[in-house]
Every structure is written in C-alpha cells, then in structure tokens.
C-alpha cells in the first residue's frame, strides 16, 4: 500500500525537517506555502498604535508519497524535527494513495516510488 503524508509545519522548521528526512533516505517531496490557523486562531501583530489581530498565519505544507511500512519512521522524524512544544507546531495528515505513475517512464506503483539510495534500500 502507498500512503501520502501531508505535514503542516512552521515555515522556520522546514529546513531542519528536510535535513532530517534526507538523513533517513526520503528523497522526494514537494512543499506548498499555505496560510491557516488552528484552535488558537491567529496572532496579534504590532501596528502604528497598539496591535491588531491576524487570523491566518503563514505555514508550509510538506507532501511526501511513500510505502506503508515507512510511514511511522517518517512521521516520527518529522515530529522530532518540527517540534517547538508551543501552540502552532502544526499537524500531519496521512491518506491512502490509489496509484502512482512516474511520467518519464510510465512506471506504476512501487516501481514509480523507489530510487537508488532511498529509504527502502538503506
């Protein structure tokens, strides 16, 4: 089975998380800049006088598609690298993926996901 990990992270944690993932052999990912808020609902920013409330904060969304058996290790790695212990550290969502196709070769499934030196060959 193939899974997709969608991790919402603090912008400033992206570099650390990517380095940690590289260390365990995650070679492919993409990143989207997103804005949002959780239960705490935004932050106060300083204005000309006093402050004003901003609802949506900048975050990054990290997308990784990988095989089932690597999910736990990857999620642990992300959590460890991205944690600050404060409100707003983000969330990770995990979905099943029906199919993966590598456009260059039309390979499908596991073959489309494996690379020399990736997490499965370590």
């Amino acid at each position: 089975m193939t899974k997709k990990i969608e991790a919402i992270l603090r912008e400033e944690k992206l570099d650390v998380v990517m380095a940690a993932l590289r260390d365990i052999g995650i070679v492919g990912m993409n990143v989207i800049e997103v804005r949002g808020h959780g239960r705490q609902g935004g932050i106060e920013l300083v204005g000309r006088t006093g402050s004003y409330h901003v609802d949506l904060l900048p975050r990054v969304q990290l997308n990784i598609v990988l095989s089932d058996h690597n999910v736990d290790r990857t999620v642990d790695t992300i959590c460890k690298a991205a944690q600050t212990g404060n409100i707003g550290d983000g969330l990770i969502f995990i979905y099943p993926v029906d199919e993966v196709v590598r456009i260059r070769t039309s390979e499908r499934g596991r073959q489309a996901l494996t690379y020399a030196g990736d997490i499965d060959t370590r």
């Binding site: 300083v46 204005g47 000309r48 006088t49 006093g50 402050s51």
Partner: peptide
C-alpha cells in the same frame, strides 16, 4: 510608545 504598549513597531 509602541514599546510600552507592545513591541517597538517599525510602522510606528
């Protein structure tokens, strides 16, 4: 003034 109320604001 902004520092007393909050942080030293550049816009301020």
């Amino acid at each position: 003034l902004t520092w007393r109320d909050n942080k030293p604001s550049v816009l301020g």
